[in-house]
């Protein structure tokens, strides 16, 4: 199969917004930008593993921001990813308590190239906690909720993808799962705030 390495920015952003060809686009982001962003982290006190973790978060944050129309295209995708990578890495360095004076200076010398998305990135731990809560949900609940709310599949397709008898049973199960997750999140008001930041910016 032919591997397309370079996509124009407009195609990347357009596909992310419409949710089409997502796998292809994510792979293209890796092929086009991983090396340079990885190099940046490895030359700023990071390891290869750090670079891989951060890049994964960069891609997640980028897709999320594009889908919420917070990437306005004032800078190129490359520049935007670089900013995300830098901010996520600096936050991580601070978190690890080994932010060096050099990085502090580096941080001050940089200007933001797009919208101020700092609060979304800074709350990395809050986001991880939210994901952990979802992770704790039972496998069946996770599957139904993901198929419906993330993959946007219609009920009849979810019936085929699960062992449930019919759409009504799935609908009831989905309702219960959603309410269960809501209660789990309600137990921690800080998580609600993190989600508010993610949802409304």
């Amino acid at each position: 199969m032919e591997v397309i390495k370079n996509f124009p920015d407009s195609e990347i952003v357009g596909n992310i917004r419409s949710g089409e060809r997502m796998d292809e686009i994510i792979k293209a982001l890796y092929r086009m930008h991983f090396d340079s962003l990885c190099w940046h982290i490895m030359n700023n006190s990071g390891s290869r593993e750090d670079a891989e973790d951060i890049f994964q978060e960069v891609v997640v944050s980028f897709i999320d921001l594009v889908q919420k129309d917070k990437f306005r295209g004032e800078s190129s995708v490359k520049t935007f990813l670089f900013s995300l990578n830098r901010n996520l890495w600096l936050n991580e360095l601070k978190r690890k308590g080994r932010a060096l004076a050099r990085e502090e200076k580096f941080e001050k010398g940089q200007e933001r190239t797009e919208a101020d998305f700092g609060h979304q990135l800074a709350d990395r731990e809050g986001k991880l906690a939210v994901l952990n809560v979802v992770e704790r949900l039972g496998e069946t609940c996770k599957k139904i909720l993901l198929l419906f709310y993330y993959e946007n599949l219609p009920m009849k397709d979810i019936v085929s993808a699960t062992d449930f008898e019919n759409e009504q049973v799935v609908r009831n199960k989905k309702y219960k799962c959603l309410k269960q997750l809501e209660q789990m999140l309600d137990a921690n008001p800080i998580l609600k705030q993190t989600l508010k930041n993610l949802l409304h910016g």
Binding site: K27, V59, D64, Y150, D186, L195
Partner: peptide, 29 residues
Amino acid sequence: SLLLTKEAVKQYGLKEKVAGIHKGMMKEM
């Protein structure tokens, strides 16, 4: 509250999607 719950699912879905592709890409890289 429901919107925030849905947002949590979407965040999890996105993270899972990227994590799934990440492994394969790291092998390639």
